[in-house]
Design a protein around this nucleic acid. Structure first.
Length: 415
RNA sequence: GUGAGUAUAGCUCAAUCGGUAGAGCACUGGACUGUGGAUCCGGGGGUUAAGGGUUCGAGCCCCUUUACUCACCCCA
């Protein structure tokens, strides 16, 4: 045998047994999105690298160290998309969709980040996400969060909703300055990581889990208390919208989003069924992003949900993934029976009834085992006798009972 | 990028003090030649991740490499 070639690190195969779960996930997502008026958009997996530098943020980890970037035959600098929002916004602008008023779009597909893989984090991972453009009002935020909540509920997933506001251009900069100053004056009491984060991403410091940092962090200024009147009103309205929709949440003042473009509403659904990567979905508002990427000033809000993480939760909850099983499995006793099985299987399939047979023929025992393994409901033995008389016995594989059936009536009997 | 752990059959794992590489599951054949799941008996499967070292002798001890896993950073 030639040497074996393995798949790329952090990029996983989804075998047929698992794929059923993913199909279910996506089918329910499509249904729920439709209920809320979101329509599917499909954009390329590859985009100009520039798009993410400008959209996601030059200083973010995603752009700085996690992007797959390559030269396209010495010409353009391209990137495998690390997230879905930038490309969706690019398409929104490029096709002038903004002239038609507000748009609600969703997408499903693979994203790529070159990180060290661990539980719940992979180099190719899959997201279901949505973006709503052109509506700045807070009830949209509430409705979109409710959409995600509905979706998770339909799958029987219990996840905790954490909500926060990260302010906007008029209140966040001043707050960050104050926060930096405060943290700077307590340098000695904070861990090494915090001292690093202080400059790069001071909001992250608030999230530190190190015990010795806690006293300083507890007394740190809170963004929620420093929101400008507009942001504060927006946040209150989002909360009242969620209350009206019956969506339960907890306000988490430490909740931070990693991408530069977020303003105001930020939220996350977390589950303790996951490993250390506890967020199954996260989202927020990005009112300046369309403009940053060359479009007209357009408010926007969206979320992304990690399919691998959701699958992990479903699996842990022991929720069975529905798979379509054959209704009939044809067992052939001889050559004539095998030929008849081929014909009858075609007849059933034309009628929309799933069925299988074992083209290898062979011993009936082996064929029955095969029928059992693929989960067929009935087995039907065909041989010279049945072909001649047109009569056969339909065997219910669960009860092992056989009932006579005329081959001419087969479709009607198993439909 | 940093740290820790693991690596034996397709899968899950054993192998005593360093002394002849095993079991269960799965697959397959038979008991049962036109009727599956149970039971019993049999069969194929291995460079013990790779390379080197110590030793009379290494799956086991030492070194190097690789892969995987988990965690940090960060995120879905």
């Amino acid at each position: 045998m030639a040497t074996k070639i393995n798949g790329v690190k952090g990029m996983n195969d989804l075998l047929p047994g698992q794929a059923a779960r993913w199909q279910e996930m996506e089918a329910i997502a499509r249904e729920v999105f439709a209920l809320y008026g979101y329509r599917e958009v499909r954009t390329p997996v590859v985009e100009p690298a520039q798009l993410f530098a400008r959209g996601v943020g030059e200083a973010t980890d995603i752009v700085k160290k996690e992007m797959y970037v390559f030269e396209d035959k010495g010409e353009d600098l391209l990137a495998l998309r690390p997230e879905g929002t930038a490309g969706t916004v690019r398409a929104f602008i490029e096709h002038g969709a903004f002239v038609e008023g507000p748009q609600k779009w969703f997408y499903v597909g693979p994203m790529f980040r070159r990180e060290r893989p661990q539980k719940g984090r992979y180099r190719q991972f899959h997201q279901i996400g949505c973006e709503a453009f052109g509506i700045a009002e807070p009830f949209l935020d509430a409705e979109q969060i409710a959409l995600l909540d509905d979706f998770l509920a339909r799958l029987g997933v219990r996840a905790e909703l954490k909500l926060n506001s990260v302010g906007d251009r008029s209140c966040r900069p001043a707050y960050l300055q104050d926060l930096r100053a405060y943290l700077g004056s307590h340098k000695g009491e904070l861990c090494a990581d915090c001292n690093e984060r202080m400059e790069r991403n001071p909001l992250r410091v608030l999230d530190c889990k190190v015990e010795s940092c806690q006293p300083v962090l507890a007394a740190a200024p809170r963004l929620l208390e420093r929101l400008c009147p507009e942001c504060a009103a927006h946040f209150e309205a989002v909360k009242s919208g969620l209350d009206a929709l019956g969506v339960r949440y907890t306000v988490d003042t430490r909740l931070v989003r990693g991408l530069d473009y977020y303003v105001r509403t930020a939220y996350e659904f977390t589950s303790d069924a996951l490993g250390s990567q506890s967020a199954v979905a996260g989202g927020g508002r990005y009112d300046g992003l369309v403009e940053t990427l060359g479009g007209p000033p357009t408010p926007g809000i969206g979320f992304a949900l990690g399919q691998e993480r959701l699958a992990m939760i479903l699996e842990k909850a022991g929720r069975a993934a529905p798979e379509r099983k054959p209704v009939v499995f044809f067992v052939s006793a001889d050559e004539a029976g095998a030929r008849e099985a081929l014909r009858r299987a075609a007849e059933l399939r034309r009628a929309g009834i799933a069925c299988e047979l074992d083209p290898r023929g062979g011993k009936m025992k082996a064929q029955f085992k095969q029928a059992e393994r693929v989960g067929a409901r009935y087995a039907l033995v065909l041989g010279g006798n049945e072909v001649q008389t047109g009569q056969a016995k339909l065997k219910d594989l669960a009860t092992r009972e056989e009932t006579p059936v005329a081959l001419a009536d087969l479709v009607a009997r198993v439909r």
